[in-house]
């Protein structure tokens, strides 16, 4: 069974359903990517997995445990870490304090995890006394991911981590995401840049209007002529 299995999710905001029988799964140690055109419900699917959205049918199972009824906060305690697309740092707190806040629920020694985060993102060690609000977009994104890692999650969820950063920074961020995945942490992410995302993905989900359209390995989707034509610009 998959490490995360969100099966048959149907729901939305208020009375209008955005997701229709949508299924997302992430295997242990793999990167899964949700791509699709604008308004396909990519971020909505992610939010549904995290419990920020009411789904009236379907279930979410994490590491064999049914968490469908839990609130986002409780899911954090169960090992989910979510990095929102925007407003994802504490701007008037230092980088180090941002990381500390990520570990708020932990009562054990957090120094080792913080050291690991600094290993992954050396720039953050340099800037650890600086306020997160003063950092560049790419650095801020690293703080956001670092904060999420501080919870020692079992699953990392990234909502468009490369939105609004320059192409060079984007490449750096993708490299970092691969680095994180190599540590064995499964990752679920939503991406606007379908081509690059599928390149690093073990599993890809193409959503259209809240429904699963194509599901395959990243490589297979990249090679699928229909996917290329419709979603990757030929």
């Amino acid at each position: 069974m998959s490490f995360l299995l969100a099966q048959g999710m149907t729901g939305g905001y208020g009375s209008v359903d955005i997701l229709h029988d949508c299924t997302i799964a992430v295997e242990a140690g793999e990167i899964a990517v949700i791509v699709g055109p604008n308004g396909a419900g990519k971020s909505t699917a992610m939010k549904a997995v995290f419990g920020m959205l009411d789904i009236h049918s379907g279930s979410v199972i994490l590491d064999g445990e049914d968490i469908t009824a839990l609130s986002p906060q409780d899911r954090v305690a169960k090992g989910m870490a979510f990095v929102p697309q925007t407003n994802n740092v504490f701007p008037s707190m230092s980088v180090e304090q941002n990381l500390e806040m990520g570990a708020f629920l932990r009562r054990d020694d957090i120094n080792k995890t913080m050291e690991e985060v600094y290993e992954l993102f050396p720039i953050l060690r340099e800037k650890r006394r600086q306020n997160a609000g003063e950092l560049s977009g790419g650095q801020r994104q690293q703080v956001a991911v670092g904060r999420a890692l501080m919870t020692q999650p079992k699953l990392l969820m990234l909502d468009e981590p490369t939105a609004g950063v320059s192409p060079i920074v984007m490449d750096e961020l993708f490299d970092l995401i691969i680095d994180i995945a190599r540590t064995g942490l499964p990752i679920l992410m939503v991406e606007q840049n379908a081509r690059q995302a599928l390149n690093i993905a073990d599993k890809g989900y193409v959503l259209v209007q809240g429904r699963n359209r194509f599901t395959d390995t990243g490589q297979a989707l990249m090679n699928d002529p229909e996917v290329r034509k419709s979603f990757l610009g030929g």
Binding site: P72, Q73, V76, A77, F82, P84, N87, N88, V89, F90, P91, S92, M93, Q97, E100, M101, G102, F104, L105, R147, T151
Partner: peptide, 23 residues
Amino acid sequence: TRSGKSMRAYSDNEDLALLSGIN
């Protein structure tokens, strides 16, 4: 203090504070 920092975090970014498990 932990509580004091959680207050500052909450004041800075309420939603993210919730995501970090701050009550």
